[in-house]
Design a protein around this nucleic acid. Structure first.
Lengths: 206, 206
DNA sequence: CTTAGATCGAACCGGTCGGTTCGATCAGGA
DNA sequence: TCCTGATCGAACCGACCGGTTCGATCTAAG
């Protein structure tokens, strides 16, 4: 059953509603697994309306992916910020948040990376590159605040864990991948911040 | 230009040739990016021949993915074996081999994971799960031979790095991801095998 | 030579796709 | 009230899809 048939007649509201509906369907069925006719039906709009708002299916996909990238980026940053000032705790919180996502019923991997995998020519690739760059920025910031010897390098390593966890959770392990990734991340953080004596660094240091 | 028009009339040879050709096209263009008509034309066979050999496009895709999984698995195992008996060297060799792959012109991520991402209902998902399981087995074996405290856990962590490196190389970094993954893998190996004194373990131990 | 089977090439099928257009409808501002 | 513009619903387009069939052709085995 589509939208309650309200005919809001407010372009902004219509656009937002379409984006919300299309995101769910495109994520669960894939970019090529659903046609714009069905998209319009589910969103409760006509094809002409969709055409005027987004220009093409590709335009709709791009708008959906950009909105999603923004939201996911804010969500991860929030998870880190809510974990307090301790870098190790922030890192753990990021991967715990991932674990919560993996446990959600409709989890099917990263929508942006999936889209870029399906249409490697379209702007999806550009959005995906920027999306990973945003994750890298968050992780590098945490690495720097933790006092890592090479924050950029540690950030890149942590990004591998983050993206690897999504793939493994989707195609192999399920939610357990988040726990493995968190353990590995904390180990790498410890390795990159350890003093050169036998002391195990990264622990509480006020 | 298709096959040299030899008409081998040998079913096994024909099947192998079709698999080889289809693998390249399906990998570079995506499962939905090419029709069976073009596949047949490039392979130099008729649609009826393809239909008799593989039953359907899905059957062809499955055969392609299974053959590729076998080949990739053997390739990685060989890379490890050729690196000698030292677990750390074997691990480094695995990620160095990955780096070589990332540098190849047509690299577009893992064909099996990509396929499962595109068609998450088809047998592609099953093949992908088994594919990652094979990688996990190799990495866990190396972890165990290195004397890790928990080889299964370390194996799972290394799998995250392997899969993460493929995604990041495809969508963000390029070949550098392999170097980051190797460094992280060696750090995790060190972390999991270190003695509880200050000595940095994992080194040569006969 | 004859025959059986693999293959070709082309036509054909029903279906779906993304995109376009058009007349009717409806709400809000002048 | 009347107009503007957002929207609807439906029809339509050309293209391509995966799959099926058929007669002709070619090769290798008997």
């Amino acid at each position: 059953m589509p939208v309650p048939r309200g005919s809001s007649l407010d372009p902004d509201r219509t656009r937002a509603a379409v984006l919300r509906t299309a995101e769910g369907i495109l994520y669960s069925r894939g970019l090529d697994g659903v046609g714009i006719a069905e998209l319009c039906a589910e969103a409760g709009i006509s094809k002409e309306t969709l055409y005027r708002h987004f220009g093409s299916k590709d335009g709709l996909v791009r708008a959906v992916l950009e909105a999603r990238s923004d939201r996911v980026t804010r969500w991860l940053a929030r998870a880190a910020a809510d974990a307090g000032d301790e870098p190790a705790a922030q890192l753990a919180a990021v991967f715990d948040a991932l674990g919560g996502w993996f446990n959600e019923p409709g989890f099917r991997g990263c929508a942006i990376v999936n889209a870029a995998t399906q249409h490697h020519t379209t702007p999806a690739s550009t959005i995906a590159t920027r999306h990973l760059g945003r994750h890298l920025e968050l992780l590098t910031t945490i690495a720097a605040r933790a006092g890592a010897a090479d924050p950029a390098a540690l950030g890149r390593q942590l990004l591998l864990l983050l993206e690897g966890a999504i793939v493994v959770a989707d195609h192999h392990d399920g939610p357990g991948a988040a726990d493995d990734a968190r353990d590995a991340a904390l180990a790498l953080l410890d390795h990159a911040t350890r003093r050169r004596d036998g002391h195990s660094g990264g622990g509480r240091r006020g």
